[in-house]
Design a protein around this nucleic acid. Structure first.
Lengths: 226, 226
DNA sequence: CGGGATATTGACTCTTATCAATGCCCGTGG
DNA sequence: CCACGGGCATTGATAAGAGTCAATATCCCG
């Protein structure tokens, strides 16, 4: 099963009050301050079942959002990169968990749900609604990937997604190990590795190292992501 | 491939102005009227790529939300039952399509996105945010199902979901054919049929007909949905 | 340099898909 | 009222894709 031990002996985060007037603020109608917190590699930001009370914005690092089955099978629903927000929940409980993939800094804004005082502010609600709708769209796309695409199509879609979200430079640095990619794509890490090999053989990508990927033929890659 | 022909020669809906003061209104701060529309079995409510401009509430019938790959592979992300809302989109384009599973009546409320005039109303925004967050939660649960559960676990989860959403009577009437269940669960219709047979053999369910299912042992079913 | 974590590759298994035949149910028309 | 036909569902035989288990290989990081 999955080795979750590293995740569970969570390093304590190091919070600090941070003025929200800077570019770190969600919007100027938001709660007056955000709390900056740092998390080490593979440490927990919040866990499934925990009380929710904040939304977070990634300042640096990468965050993974996941759910576990009782027997340890894991599904990652999203990776969040700097500038992106996460942590929104319908009710007062987290239904997913969030962990730092690499050393990560986030800024946490208090928000308890629809009954929160800040939910009286139009701009806060608009921003959160936009966030929720974007999340919904991404998740629906991901459902199609998990329900209907084969292993090769899944990996290609992943590489193209990461590339698009990091400036479309066609050279991507993967923050996460094969295991995380596998749990995002609904595969095993061996299958992910084999699909990398297959793309390499067909000249679609070049692996400078396991984590640094050159996308050599964008047209063909896009065509094969189905 | 999928037989989508029936869906594509869409019957024209029959709209009619409907006062929103009744219990059909989304909320009393909502747009003043909703438009009631009727759709026949397997007709399109809106298609992927179409302009979006409304949110809908199911009055009667069942609606399926889906996405297609170019080669016809289909993933259904949700079924919507009476009282439930759907149709919310981040931008002005539908990224999924909606079709009537059975003869269906919906009420359509105009809403063009975050720039819509009604987005100045706190209650509208709250309601839509709640809707989006619920959708997000459901979709994340479904990702875990598609990415990590086996065929039997998927079918059991589906049956329990339908039962819970229709009053937990332990007798459910499925509005949709095996093919739709398969496209919701990321399986083929044959596999769905085989899993029904397996549940029957183990005395977990009884099939009064293909569409009417008795859940005989809730405890065991819950245990095996993983 | 050495060692642990991460990644690749290989051999084999197992679940689910595919292809194909048959059965069942229900509405329609003779 | 019964027979027919068409859509839907079940069941069977086989194939294919991904998983599992296991043996290296490689890369960091101290």
């Amino acid at each position: 099963m999955l080795t979750q031990s590293a995740v569970h002996d969570t390093a304590r985060p190091t919070p600090s009050i941070f003025p929200a007037s800077s570019n770190y603020a969600l919007s100027n109608s938001w709660a007056p301050v955000g709390l900056v917190m740092s998390f080490g590699r593979n440490t927990e930001i919040y866990a499934e079942g925990e009380a929710s009370g904040h939304v977070y914005k990634v300042l640096s690092g990468v965050v993974r959002i996941s759910k576990l089955l009782p027997d340890g099978r894991r599904q990652i629903s999203a990776f969040h990169m700097p500038g992106e927000m996460f942590g929104l929940e319908v009710d007062q409980i987290h239904h997913v968990s969030a962990e730092a993939v690499t050393a990560t800094k986030v800024i946490a804004f208090k928000w308890d749900g629809l009954s929160d005082a800040s939910s009286k502010h139009l701009n806060v609600l608009r921003e959160l609604l936009g966030l929720a709708m974007q999340g919904l769209r991404h998740t629906q796309d991901h459902l199609l990937l998990l329900g209907r695409k084969n292993a090769l199509e899944r990996l290609v879609a992943f590489l193209l997604e990461i590339d698009a979200r990091t400036g479309s430079r066609h050279i991507i640095d993967l923050a996460m190990p094969r295991h995380d990619i596998a749990d995002y794509l609904g595969l095993t890490l061996e299958t992910v590795s084999r699909m990398f090999a297959e793309l390499k053989e067909h000249g679609m990508i070049r692996l400078e190292s396991a984590r640094r990927v050159h996308l050599l033929d964008m047209a063909k890659l896009k065509a094969m992501s189905a």
